[in-house]
Design a protein around this nucleic acid. Structure first.
Length: 271
DNA sequence: AGTGCGGCCTGTCCGC
DNA sequence: TGCGGACAGGCCGCAC
């Protein structure tokens, strides 16, 4: 499942082969994604040159002179740059052929992903305007988290997974960061001290950076822009390890559900 | 206003 | 072996 490190990996992986290229053709094989892909997209993109690609949270922004394509990979989406002639696969919903002999393929079996077109400032788009700070930016500090978290009655895990508070922390990295910080995922946010918040901010940054370094985490579906799996899975401390011994203390890892999400933690290391 | 949950989807896994 | 059902999950949008 693509979280921030996976999206960052894809962004870095495809930039060199698409920026500066001109669109030759856009084909929509399936317009029913999270939101319908506008039928006018092929016309909008025709003959436009790709100016750049960047990331905001888990959104990829591909910019053109006349607007921006905002892509989200949802749960199972992949974005690959392939030779133009490589065969279309099942669930290749959108194919963007470039004038350099390559083709961008958006593949998403579960169709939780999206592809949105905007001609305004993309950061002011409804999907992006309300987003909290980037977790790896200097804006994301213990003081910020502490201020934002005080008086809130939600579980800390739910809180850090809410993109209004901080972007890019999904289910896997939330469990991992809380383990590294020694904080029980059910802890009510207002009970966290400033020191807890500082520690947690540090471990969120730490786990995201480590995952980017290893090319992301592949759980079931994630592949990078070259179709390769991420290697961070082997580094996971608690995620999907229910019933197995904690690497640190040997206590059996527990799983519970918080806000309809499976959550993993060590009952001894996290309090 | 803030919180919580329904719904969108298909592949995988499990039990009968 | 084949089939049905449960489950996985990001995130918007609605209901309370």
């Amino acid at each position: 499942m693509p979280e921030l490190p996976e999206v960052e990996t894809i962004c870095r992986g495809i930039a060199a082969s698409i920026v500066g290229a001109k669109i030759a053709q856009v084909r929509i094989n399936q317009h029913r994604l999270r939101w319908p892909v506008p039928k006018s997209l092929p016309t909008k993109l025709a003959h436009q040159t790709i100016k750049g690609i960047s990331r905001r949270g888990k959104y990829l922004l591909i910019s053109f002179p006349n607007g921006t394509l905002i892509a989200h990979l949802g749960m199972t989406g992949t974005l690959q740059v392939l030779p133009e002639k490589s065969p279309t696969k099942k669930h290749d919903h959108i194919e963007i052929t470039l004038d350099n002999g390559k083709c961008i393929r958006f593949n998403d079996p579960r169709r939780f992903g999206s592809m949105v077109w905007t001609e305004k400032d993309p950061l002011q788009h409804k999907l992006l305007a309300q987003l909290g700070p980037e977790p790896l930016s200097p804006d994301f500090t213990g003081e910020y988290l502490s201020l934002k978290a005080k008086n809130k009655l939600t579980a800390i895990k739910t809180f850090i997974m809410n993109s209004k508070n901080v972007v890019g922390v999904g289910n896997i990295y939330a469990s991992e960061a809380l383990f590294l910080a020694g904080i029980k995922p059910t802890t009510i946010t207002k009970k966290l001290s400033l020191d807890h918040c500082k520690k947690l901010v540090k471990t969120i940054k730490q786990v995201l950076l480590a995952s980017i370094k290893h090319g992301g985490t592949t759980f079931r579906d994630y592949k990078n822009s070259h179709g390769e799996h991420g290697q961070f899975k082997t580094k996971l401390q608690v995620y999907d390890r229910a019933g197995m011994p904690c690497y640190r203390c040997g206590t059996t890892i527990k799983t519970i559900r918080i806000g309809q999400r499976s959550t993993f933690y060590c009952p001894k290391c996290q309090r």
